[in-house]
Simulated assay, not measured.
Amino acid sequence: MTASRHPPLRHTPLRHGWLAHAFRAPRTLRSKLSDRGSLTQRLQAQHADFKVQLLTRGITRPNRDESQALHLRPASRAYGRDVLLLGGGIARVFAHSVLPRASLRGGWNGITRLGNKPLGEALFTNPRIRRLGLSLRRLDARHPLYRAARRHAGFTARHVWARRSVFCLNGHPLLVTEVFLPAHDAL
C-alpha cells in the first residue's frame, strides 16, 4: 500500500450548515436522506427507465464547504462531475462529485471516463471503497449547488435537501453530494 499525500480523513466536524441527522427535513424525505445505501440502486429498483444524464465534467474549483470536507486549500482545483439521475422521464436527483486532483491517480482514475454511467454502481460494488459519515443540508439560492441544480433541472422550489458523503479508496477521498429535486418527493 502506498502512502497517501492526503492527511488521514476522519469525519470532519460539520460546518457550513451541514447536519448529521435528518430530523429537520420533511418527513417524506427523512428516510431517503439518511439511508446509507446506494441511491442509484434505489432509483433503478423504482424506475425501469432509470438513466444518468451527464451535465458537466472536468477540472474545477470546489465550493468552500467542499474544500473543507476534503481538507483542501481554498484555491485548490479538483475534478468535478455533475449529472442528473432520471426516472420516469423526470429529473429526480442532481448529483455532484468532487475528486481532488491528487486522487485522480490509482483506483479513482476511472471516474473521469464514466460518462452517462452511474457513479453509485462503482462506489457500492467495490469492497475496497469505504464511506465516511453522511451529512445533510437544506440548500437555498445562497448555495452554489442549489443554483447549479436549479439551472439544470429547472425547478421553482425555494429550497431543496441534499446529502453528501466522502468515499475513500486507498486513503484518497471522493466527495459525493446528492441534491433531492422536488420530483423526488413523489417517490
Rank of each mutant, 00 (worst) to 15 (best):
P100Y: 06
V98H: 00
R57C: 15
R30K: 09
K51L: 09
H47F: 15
R92L: 13
E66Y: 07
R151Q: 15
R77A: 03
S76F: 01
L175C: 12
A148L: 13
S67E: 12
K51N: 08
R137Q: 14
N170I: 09
A95Y: 00
R130K: 14
V98G: 00
T112I: 14
Y79W: 14
R27G: 14
T125L: 11
E66F: 05
L145G: 00
G120I: 10
H16T: 03
R5W: 01
S4N: 04
N126D: 14
I59Y: 07
L175Q: 12
V179Q: 02
A75T: 14
W161N: 11
D49W: 08
G17I: 04
T156I: 00
L85K: 03
A186E: 08
V83S: 02
L14I: 06
R158C: 03
R158V: 05
A149V: 01
V93P: 01
A69C: 09
S103M: 01
A95G: 00
R61T: 15
G110P: 03
S31D: 09
P8V: 14
T60P: 00
A102C: 02
I129H: 11
R42L: 14
A69E: 13
E178P: 01
A122F: 07
A3K: 10
M1V: 07
L104H: 03
I90G: 05
R142L: 08
T12A: 12
C168W: 06
D65L: 08
F23G: 06
N126W: 01
K117S: 15
A162P: 01
A162M: 01
F155R: 03
L114E: 13
F167Y: 15
H21P: 00
G115R: 02
D49G: 09
L134N: 10
A102L: 07
H143C: 10
Q46N: 13
R163L: 06
N109V: 07
L104P: 02
L132I: 10
T12E: 11
R138V: 07
L85E: 07
H159A: 15
K51T: 09
L119P: 00
V166Y: 01
H152Q: 11
H184D: 15
L134S: 08
S67D: 12
L99G: 05
L86Q: 08
G106R: 06
H71I: 07
T60H: 03
L19E: 15
L136Q: 05
A91F: 02
T156W: 00
S67Q: 12
P7T: 04
D49A: 07
D49K: 09
P74R: 05
V52E: 13
R101L: 14
L114A: 13
H152Y: 09
S31A: 10
P127A: 10
E178V: 04
Q44S: 10
F50W: 11
